[in-house]
């Protein structure tokens, strides 16, 4: 393929990847930002979203688009509910101690994987996209649905931003983030806020999964990759900064495609992983975060 179209394809793929990254990482970033909790089960919330989406679209009669729309509503509710329950039953009792929380969310992720394996099975199963449109460019074809994912991701991220900056709920979350004791003194029910934020983070992962699952497939081990990628994005962007997360997603998404053109893709992944570690070591506030 000539260089021009090649670059075009790499850019398109990079944009889709950036959207996917931003979508999966935003929930993790939110949870870390407000609760100072590293949620290792985040990838499994993503997986649960995809699996529930399969159930919804599989058993719902009518056109695929309608079933898909239903999945977009049902999945985040179900997964958010599970997350709120996990928070109340487990994380709260650990008093959100960072290390204990990590161990507990590792435990949760095993349990979620087993639940998916038992009730859904070991197969990778496709979920039909709400519409089947292929863009035929002169040099190559491209999935129209992928473009739709980019648009949906932008809308969703905009909604999260509005929620955080323009609503009372966002104000309460930011207040809790700044100082939970003072927030409590002002009559904020911190327990409820935490459960809500944890559910919101998981729900965002689930929405991301529903949007992405027609591109990939639902599989009980699919949570591992989004988790690592989300970690990378959130760290590079600066832990807890939404704007940083978005910026990092765009940079990583776009550069990933280009790097793997010049290097062996496995080598590219090694370098990316080491880069993340180095950022944490030498610039713990992230590439885009301000010095604390």
């Amino acid at each position: 393929m000539d260089f021009g179209p090649y670059l075009l394809l790499a850019l398109m793929e990079g944009t889709v990847m950036a959207a996917v990254l931003a979508l999966t990482a935003v929930g993790l970033s939110l949870v870390f930002g407000v609760m100072r909790v590293v949620n290792v089960a985040h990838g499994e919330f993503f997986m649960l979203g995809a699996v529930v989406a399969w159930f919804v679209t599989h058993y719902m009669p009518g056109p695929p688009a309608l079933a898909f729309a239903a999945a977009l509503v049902i999945c985040p509710l179900v997964v958010g509910g599970i997350a709120a329950l996990s928070d109340t039953l487990i994380l709260k009792r650990l008093n959100y101690d960072p290390e204990a929380t990590i161990v507990a969310t590792i435990g949760l992720s095993y349990i979620f994987q087993q639940a998916a394996l038992t009730f859904y099975g070991p197969d990778a199963r496709p979920v039909e996209a709400p519409f089947n449109l292929r863009l035929q460019l002169p040099w190559f074809g491209y999935s129209g649905y992928k473009i739709a994912v980019v648009l949906a991701a932008m809308l969703l991220l905009l909604a999260v931003w509005l929620l955080m900056t323009r609503t009372r709920a966002g104000l309460i979350m930011r207040a809790t983030q700044l100082d939970r004791n003072t927030a409590r003194a002002f009559g904020i029910n911190v327990d409820k806020v935490y459960a809500g934020v944890f559910a919101l983070g998981a729900g965002l992962a689930a929405v991301a999964a529903v949007l992405i699952v027609p591109i990939q497939q639902a599989h009980y081990l699919m949570g591992h990759d989004p988790l690592l990628l989300s970690f990378i994005v959130v760290i590079i962007g600066g832990l807890g900064s939404l704007r940083g997360t978005l910026l990092a997603a765009v940079i990583i998404g776009l550069s990933d495609g280009v790097i793997s053109v010049f290097f062996s893709p496995t080598l590219a992944k090694i370098l990316a992983t080491l880069l993340v570690a180095m950022v944490l070591v030498f610039r713990p506030q992230g590439l885009f975060g301000a010095k604390p």
């Binding site: 393929m1 179209p5 090649y6 394809l9 790499a10 793929e13 990847m17 190559f140 591109i215 990939q216 699919m222 990759d225 495609g257 793997s260 053109v261 062996s264 893709p265 496995t266 992944k269």
Partner: peptide
């Protein structure tokens, strides 16, 4: 064209297929 086993998206490998 070797694809890492951890990969979940493949489109960007496909332009490497010679014409």
């Amino acid at each position: 064209i070797a694809v890492p086993p951890t990969e979940t998206s493949f489109t960007r490998y496909l332009p490497q297929i010679p014409r």
